[in-house]
Design a protein around this nucleic acid. Structure first.
Lengths: 90, 90
DNA sequence: TTGACATGCAAGTAACTACTTGCCTATTGT
DNA sequence: ACAATAGGCAAGTAGTTACTTGCATGTCAA
């Protein structure tokens, strides 16, 4: 649970999630390219790779290898009911 | 927005929110006492005070002075629709 | 097989975070 | 006034995080 919030605390990681929410099954290079083009994000490939590792640790992103590329997909399940415990009407 | 996720990333801060969700208008000392008694949390008064400052920066907690005590109250508004952008069905 | 491509790994660094320690301010009760 | 209570402020520290740099691994195309 801490992992999920910690992963979401970084703006670049939220951009990556935005990108994967818009289009599934992107490789590291695709994600890097789109972050630069669409959001002016200048993070290096290695930086994005490490962000993706954090997102995978939080189970927010799933990945599979396809030849020499690694394909990433958003997994929104950990986000469901994440804040429900503080939103109870009592 | 980063502030909210960053605030939620710490387990002790989530405990504080749990406590305030259960009972509004608690002072720093009350929160400290309850964290120790109910959750075995051994954080010092100063540590809790700093956690509350982080929660206030994120607008998750509102506070007012009442004499020599400071009364804290949960503000769940920043939590609403926090993760909606990644949960769209498309 | 050779080179280009896509990614992984690991060490180093600067900034940040959580926490402690020590002292200070303000309010209340006697 | 005085002591006790509730809290604030600021410096220091250990651990963590985000990022870079340099090199290594694995895959595909010609």
């Amino acid at each position: 649970m801490s992992d999920v919030f910690r992963a979401l605390a970084d703006p670049t990681r939220r951009l990556i999630l935005d990108e994967l929410a818009e289009r599934d099954d992107q490789s590291l290079f695709e994600i890097c390219s789109r972050l630069v083009m669409k959001h002016g994000n200048t993070s290096s490939r290695q930086a994005i790779s490490q962000h993706l590792a954090v997102l995978e640790d939080a189970d927010l992103v799933h990945s599979r290898r396809a030849g020499r590329t690694k394909i990433h997909r958003l997994n929104p399940e950990p986000l469901r009911s994440l804040t429900a415990r503080w939103l109870t009407t009592h």
